[in-house]
Design a protein around this nucleic acid. Sequence first.
DNA 1: CAAGGTGGCGCC
DNA 2: AAAGGGCGCCACCTTG
Length: 602
Amino acid sequence: MRTHEMRLAGRTVTGHVVETQEDLPAFADWAGRHTEFGYDTETTSLEVYKPGFRVRAAQFSAGDQTWFLPVERHPRFAWYTTTTLRHAKQLYIHNAAFDLQVADRHLGVPLAELFPKTIDTGIISRLVDSRARKEGGPGHKLEELTEVFIDPVAAKQIKGSVGQQCKELGLKKADYFEQVSLDDEIFQMYALMDPVLAWVLAKTLLPKVPDSARHLIGYEHEIARICSDISKQGFLLDQPYTNELATRLRQEETWWQMEIEREVEKLGFIDVDEFNPNSTDNVFEALVYMGHLEFKQTPTGKPQVDDDLLEHLAEGGMYFARCIKEMRKAGKWAGTWPESFLANADEHGRCHANINTLQARTGRMSITGIPAQTLPSGDWIVRRCFLADEGHVMASIDYAAQELRMAAVLSGDERMYRAFELGEDLHQITADAAGVTRKIGKMANFLVCYGGGWKALVEQAKIPEAMARKTIAGFNKAYPGVSKLAKEMTATAGKQGYIETITGRRLYVDSARAYSAINYAIQSASRDVTARGLIKADRAGLTSFLRLPVHDEVVASLPKNQANDLAKEIGECLRTQIKGVDFVTEPEVAARSWGSLYGADH
DNA sequence: CAAGGTGGCGCC
DNA sequence: AAAGGGCGCCACCTTG
């Protein structure tokens, strides 16, 4: 047994490192005397479901005592870990979805057993303040929270120690956690401190959750458990198709690249070997050389070379611009989607998305691993990569105009209420009030919910200033309640620095952008509509069918012979009424692939 | 050389 | 009067 003395916020913390099996009785004795623990695991990587993933160590803390178990050394260390997890009545974990999926998959303790007795300090910190560091908030990483709420010096040391060690050992951070010796003293101290921080953070942050948001604590843990179940289940990848798609896109990229080389040589303005079509700077120089001198500016003042410009030039007959655009697209698509799916698949060909249930400052979820929220929807080739399980078909259940319905709820706008009740076309109503096309009316509807003004409409719809002003005025005339709500929320945000959503969530708003308050309120409450739906679907026993939540939609894999009934059942779970507004859902069942919901497989 | 910022583009 | 919200990922480029 080795011990380390560490300092945290003026107190001494004692770390105990279990080195051999002879040390286990002392651990068991200590653990048996407690029921409440901080908990953390050290693992080879963050990819829980990838072949080769291993748990390296597990750490438990209580008060100023903390213990390190070298799980990878012998199954008995893992056994003591699982026994302690089961014996615990209360666990404090930072980003519990990770550690609990690790416990489920690699230590054999189910998510359903541990989540109900866990307080996740990641969740709590987001209920206290949802802003990341770069948004002016305290952030949500362990080091960031420690710095702000516990001990800035300790936070720096913890972050610095691993960084410095990486440098000394010549390792990247990812390699460090895989390769570092469990006997390494600095690693041990780093690992020992984490569960202590989770414990202290839980005690420090829980009282800071605003009263209005306290009821969300249990709710958010339930959502985190459901989304962990969805991640664990995984989404079946059609590997042959995905391989073929990746190859095809790379071939397209190469073909366009050769066209570009020919063009560059023909023009003779620069060495072919030095021209990189993926470099915005290079393309800018080339365009200038070719006589194009008018560029919009990026937010930092650099010349903008985007798709809009390239398309404009291509339409004007510049083949070079067409080539750049097509090459960029093929390369980006190949790397972002099919290649990353293939790299992410587990040994059974399933991709496990990482669902961050409270990622955005509005509480919206984000999905990494499979960037499922950004797959092209106008073209089915990418979604075609994913399949329903054997004997299943794909279904999607989405909310009809979820955010506009929320705008109606929050504003109480009579015209909007009536439109939803009678099934009228809200976009046409705006269009009629302004004397513009439905398409522009629709853009205006969303724009106002995003806090935008007429200038943005000029850009997006490519219409003259006067028409854009007229359209926004038309919206205000059609739905005066929404206009009023936007003004009120902006004022509230400006005055108190934050708004409160109808679900009680406190959202801080930058004073320079107080106008975004209405969007925060709509987006956040809409997220909670979907999240409440997920809980209802879970309680109805439907979680194992769910593959992904995507903002206002849920994707599901359903047994073929009951697909329609199950899709309707999920739809009923998601459907809800708020202040007389019916949040209608639209179940849709297609064939085997996700792409079949977008026109593939016909 | 790794980490972080920026530009660009995919979605709701 | 004017104000487009929220993300993730890739490639490039700068920084330390």
